[in-house]
Every structure is written in C-alpha cells, then in structure tokens.
Design a protein around this nucleic acid. Structure first.
Lengths: 247, 247
DNA sequence: ACAAATTTGTTCGTATGTATG
DNA sequence: ACATACATACGAACAAATTTG
C-alpha cells in the first residue's frame, strides 16, 4: 500500500537529483512517524511506478536511506523501516550483558568460531606476547532481544589461559571464561573508536545493509597489574547501538 | 598509468561479484602500500578498459572503497588514495586544538555560520533553559594541517553568555569565547557516539564522499557547578579521525 | 570571459543471477 | 517447482564539476 505516501511531486531538471528528492520524502515520512519502525515498505517496483521513475532511481534513494540507517534492505524479502537504538556505556568495567540488561533487554551471545592463531605483529604488541605464540581468536555475535547488535572479535593469550577455548565453547561470556581461568576482574584500559562500512559477512551477521556504517571499537583489557589479557575488537550496528562515554 | 596494477584476472560467474573482486584487488594494493596515500587513481574509463568491465562495475567498486575510507572520489577531478588518520582523545577536558597540536599538526577553525535560534525541546532539555529562550547556534569547520577533519555544531545559552556571538565571530575557539565570558574552565560530562552517512553539505565541507561514514559525537559541557553551558555535536570524517577513550 | 576537454554523477533501458517463501 | 524481490552487469546518454586552453 503506497496510499499512505504522498506523491511528493518530483521536480525534474532543477539541479536536485530525483533519488535525493525521493530519499528526502521517505526520510521525512519515517522521521515524522507516519511510517513506523519495523513496517515493510513497498517493493522497488511499486515505488518506481508510484514516483514515475526507473527502478534504479528508487534503489539509489533506498541505498541512501539504508546508509543513514533509516531503512533496512534485505535481498529477496523487502525493505523495512529501522528500529530504535540502544546505549552502550564505555568504561573501565564495560560488560555487554550488564549494559543490555540495564535497558530492559535480554542479552545473548552466540559463539561463531573459535580458533588458535599465531600472534602477528599487531597481536604480539597488544597482548605483550612473543610473535608466533598461540593466541585464541574467538568471534561472537551479540544480541539484544534476539536482534543482533554487535560482532565481537576477541584475542586472548593461550599461554596464560590454557583452558580458555573449552571454557568459551561452553559459555560465550568472556567475563565468565576469564573468571573461571582465575581472573575474576579485569579492566578496560583504552578504547579506540572508528566507523567504517561492514564486510559482506558482517552485514549478514548484523542483519543490516552493507551501505550502512558500523561503529568499530578496539579495546585492550588488562588485569590488576596492568598486564594485557584481551584484545577485543567490536563491530556495532550503528543503527541499533550508540556508545556512551561518561566523564 | 595502470601499468603498476596487475590485470588481476577476474573470475566471472563464480559467485563473487566482479565489483567485489576489483575492490578487493585495489584494496590490497592500497593496503600493501604499492599505491601510496594521496596518489591519483586512473579514471573510471581507464579502469573499465583495464579490467574489461562496464564503467558502472568500476564505480560500484570505487564506491565501496570510498565507503571504507580507502579512496576519495571527487566529481570532475578524479579519485585519490586516502591519507592517514588522527586520534582524538575524549575526556573531561576534551579540546580540539590541543589534541591536534599534540600530534604535530596545525589546528585551525573556520566559523561557518552563527545564528540565534529559540530553544526547542531537545535544546531546553540539554542546556537547562526554558523552551523558546534564545540559544546561539554556531557551526564550525575544524581543520588539521589545512585538511578538514570535523564539523562542530555548538549550542550555547545566550541568556548566560550575552556576548558569546561577537566573541565567537572574532575567534572561532569555543574555549576562548567561554573564557572571555567569565568561564575559564568547563568540563565534558557525557559523550554519545554514533555513526551515520553525511549529508550532502557535510560531505562537501569535509571533502569526503557521501558513501563514507562520519563519526558523530554529542556532548554536554558543564561548569564547575554541573550547570550545562554548551551542547556540542561534532561530525568527524571517519577516514581521517578516530576517537580515543582512556580509562 | 568563454569554450573545450576531462572526469565523475545521474538516469534510463535491458538482461540475468541469487535468495526467500 | 514456482513466483517474488533484491543483486549484479552491461550499454547508452546526458548532467555537473573541474581543469585547461
């Protein structure tokens, strides 16, 4: 049903690209709430007929909206208006599950893959181990209320935590695994924050469009003595999560 | 000159899109340093002929690289390999100029526009003023070594700082203007961090592609008594700047 | 000041591949 | 197996921005 959308008469040849006009119109509809979160949008073909333009023009507009995080495009299914965003406070005791629960959501973690890799230059530097030493590489999908919100890439020194692999395989919580390895408490020292476009795989895991950005954090966790115990790179669906720094 | 590039024989119909193969190939060349920062890439037409594909296919690949921040595309000029990224530490005493100088770059600020607007719900809430009260809205472009790296949107209560407009017009530094208004010291209380695609204007100001993300921070600065004195929204070119949180 | 050439940006048309239900 | 819907690819033409003559 496009009846809910105005025909927002497009002006041609006025210096404003058609796809921009269409994107702006839809953006306004979403922002104003006339199109509510989660609702499915008409197909590209329907839109094209509605606005009297080529389907490519609609696609360009939709791509833009997806990049802004206003809509989510899924191949073979359709396009949908995006949902709300969660807060993720960054601090010395940053823990995923706690933050999510504090916002009345149910946190969950799915361990995707656990493997052992030799430390390259970056890893040996970050984890203070010798180059070539074995490092555990765990990839985990983090969910809130069944919705994927982040992917975590975790690197831990196996030399220090020999049983870490089996512990993580049983329970996807890093905190629990480190605790069971004799480290009940650790602390985040530094977090680097950037933004980039997701890889194909990341977009798929996060159930988001590849033209929508992800927030990337790179953090070093250390024990009480300041010895690094984990390098964690997390990749957040920017449309569903924002970071918080309290000073 | 494409001679520096390998013909990276593309495999067609193998499930991997041509534009992805091309993007990956170029990405590898940039990552390895064979294509150094700032160098100009061949035109789309040349690339198309080189890889034996349509120009659209090249454009798709280039868009992807631009979104990843590896290249910069400029209409009418060409495409270029991107330059390095700067760190921006977030903390209670976050100041742009100091951070830039600490990395041996020359900071600069260009005041784009200063206007007076009535406080809407968001502003009255953030700045603790009544709705409709006058608020100064200043937009500033921040540069490091002549290169734009961020856009700052600053909101300050005029009721408290009556001379703030003229002060900012004379010197684009917020710190200096507040100091001259009798507030030598203020503190950042909270920073919210997100990522999104830039608007057309933002992309132009930051001299970046619209398909490359920007990091967005929203911060409240307060005086010693905890009274909010400024709401600042900053928009960083993610390809040239990353945020740092030290705990 | 103006014109031409170059390069990226937008739009249309068409065809085929791939994922979902 | 089938229809639907998004993804990729090609070809053509023109628009807009920039540089050069």
């Amino acid at each position: 049903m496009i009846s809910a959308l105005p025909l927002a008469s497009l002006s041609r040849g006025q210096g404003v690209a058609l796809w921009r006009q269409i994107a702006a119109s839809l953006s306004e509809h979403i922002g104003s709430g006339r199109l509510s979160p989660g609702t499915r949008l008409p197909t590209e073909g329907d839109f094209a007929a509605h606005f009297q333009v080529n389907r490519h023009t609609i696609r360009r507009a939709m791509e833009d909206l997806a990049a802004q995080g206003l809509v989510r495009i899924e191949q073979g299914r359709g396009s949908f208006v995006s949902e709300e965003v969660l807060d993720y406070p960054l601090g010395p005791r940053t823990r995923f599950s706690e933050s999510i629960r504090r916002q009345n959501r149910e946190p969950a973690g799915i361990m995707l893959k656990i493997e052992e890799i030799p430390a390259d230059l970056m890893l040996s530097d970050a984890l203070a181990v010798k180059r070539g030493q074995p490092v555990l590489f765990a990839r985990r999908l983090c969910l809130a209320d069944q919705r994927p919100v982040a992917i975590g890439y975790h690197y831990l020194p196996i030399t220090r935590f020999p049983r870490i692999a089996e512990l993580l395989a049983g329970n996807p919580s890093i905190t629990a695994a480190l605790s069971a390895s004799g480290l009940p408490n650790y602390r985040r020292k530094l977090t680097r924050i950037g933004a980039r476009m997701p890889s194909v795989e990341e977009a798929k895991l996060l159930e988001q469009s590849r033209v929508r950005p992800v927030l990337v954090t790179e953090a070093i966790n250390a024990d009480a003595e300041g010895q690094p115990v984990e390098l964690s790179i997390a990749c957040y669906a920017a449309a569903r999560m924002q970071l918080l720094v309290e000073n």
